[in-house]
Simulated scan of single mutants.
Amino acid sequence: MTPSTEVLNWTDRVLEVEVGAVAHGGHCVARHEGRVLFVRHALPGERVRAVVTSDQGGSFCLADAISVLEASPDRVPAPCTWARAGGCGGCDFQHVAPAAQRSLKTAVLREQLSRLGGVESEVVVEELPGGPLGWRQRIRLAVDEDGRAGLRAHHSHDVVPIADCLLAPSEMLPDLLEQSWEPGSEIDVAVDDSGWRHVGTGTHQHAAGRDWALSPGAFWQVHPALADTLVGVVEEWAQAPRGGTAWDLYGGVGLFAAVLAGQVGTDGSVTVVESSRDAVLDGERALRDLPQVRFRVGRVEHAVGSLPTPDVVVADPPRKGLGKQMIEALVAAAPQRLVYVACDPAALGRDVGLLTARGYRLRALRSFDAFPMTHHMESVALFTL
């Protein structure tokens, strides 16, 4: 192979770089010899030595900062010993002061909205109560080939054995991490509102003024303050008319349907569409006192064509967002108001562009730091015709 056709591969090379702006995904951008490096464990303005961890031979590669030559004033010691290059992949920002974490997320969200959605926004990622540690109510542990439980490395199936996770409430994990488990298995651990721990079983939570009995694996927000925070925003923005029709898409157990039901009243209707049959059964039990709420089991894109014409839609899709096909279906249904709950700023930015191109206006936007120490955030957008 001649030099001109040889595939470039910098894997395992250690490079000294100046770190630039934060990027979506928990990285910061650096450049070396005409190529882009997406560097974890770094901060804008720093000078670091970084080891290349993945290189597919294109215009960019991935790297981890392994030593800091010039530190940002926002850098702090990571409280967790496993939050480092080559360590646990769960936390991107333990080396960043909490207020600066929110500033980085705000910069990412605004950049994605501008670049992908064509919208300039003054949105700020808001702090939730509870602090940066001890907030995570649900964790899925992975078990390695030796039967040791831990968390996965960044973008890897490799299991990193740990002694604790500081994002979880104290006493949630240590004894489980000392036990031996079936190699290759996974362990779902959750803490309910009463502080009781559940291992591989369902839990009980309280939100929207009612109790929810959840089946094992049923979706629920991992930050204890987020469910009611989102309920409050949906309640304020949905404004479903009395006697009207509402959709709760990707609705899970019907958390938002409980709010919508109160707005439309017994003369209105709320249809929840959810692909998980267990979640639907949980929701039907929790909302059995609301006859105006009906559940549909199935994929949202298959169900919307047969639903009654909505006045209001609330949509909480998975990380990939709504996408073109789903947005076309929503545009055809023409709800006056769409409340969109988004957990990925890039997907939100893309969908903002698609919706505004089809006549909807972005009326309001809020974002919450529901995942401290990581690059993740939760946003809610209101669109109207």
Results as ranks from 00 to 15, higher is better:
306 S>A: 15
309 T>V: 14
292 Q>S: 13
285 R>P: 09
303 A>T: 10
329 A>N: 12
332 A>R: 09
312 V>Q: 00
324 K>Q: 13
312 V>E: 00
299 R>V: 13
316 D>N: 02
332 A>E: 12
311 D>N: 03
299 R>W: 09
308 P>A: 08
284 E>C: 11
303 A>L: 13
320 K>E: 07
314 V>I: 03
304 V>W: 07
327 I>E: 01
334 A>W: 04
323 G>I: 09
332 A>F: 05
294 R>E: 15
331 V>Y: 05
322 L>Y: 03
330 L>S: 04
331 V>K: 07
333 A>F: 02
333 A>S: 08
285 R>D: 11
292 Q>V: 08
334 A>K: 09
293 V>F: 06
285 R>I: 12
287 L>W: 08
329 A>Q: 15
316 D>Q: 01
321 G>E: 01
293 V>S: 06
306 S>P: 13
303 A>Y: 10
292 Q>C: 13
334 A>G: 03
286 A>P: 06
285 R>Q: 13
308 P>W: 00
307 L>V: 05
320 K>L: 11
317 P>S: 03
302 H>P: 04
315 A>K: 04
317 P>N: 01
307 L>D: 05
300 V>K: 10
296 R>P: 09
284 E>I: 11
321 G>R: 02
297 V>M: 09
316 D>C: 00
303 A>E: 14
317 P>T: 02
289 D>G: 12
296 R>M: 06
327 I>K: 00
289 D>C: 12
284 E>H: 08
283 G>S: 03
301 E>M: 07
322 L>T: 02
317 P>I: 03
322 L>G: 02
318 P>Y: 00
311 D>S: 05
299 R>Y: 10
298 G>L: 11
290 L>Q: 14
301 E>D: 13
303 A>Q: 15
302 H>F: 12
330 L>Q: 04
322 L>M: 02
310 P>F: 08
323 G>V: 09
331 V>F: 08
331 V>E: 12
294 R>G: 13
285 R>C: 07
294 R>V: 14
305 G>S: 09
304 V>A: 07
314 V>C: 00
325 Q>D: 15
303 A>D: 07
304 V>L: 05
319 R>W: 03
312 V>R: 01
329 A>V: 04
291 P>D: 06
305 G>M: 06
291 P>A: 06
298 G>H: 08
290 L>M: 14
284 E>G: 13
306 S>I: 07
300 V>G: 12
322 L>Q: 01
290 L>K: 15
302 H>G: 14
294 R>Q: 13
297 V>L: 09
319 R>A: 02
289 D>T: 14
313 V>A: 11
307 L>F: 10
334 A>F: 04
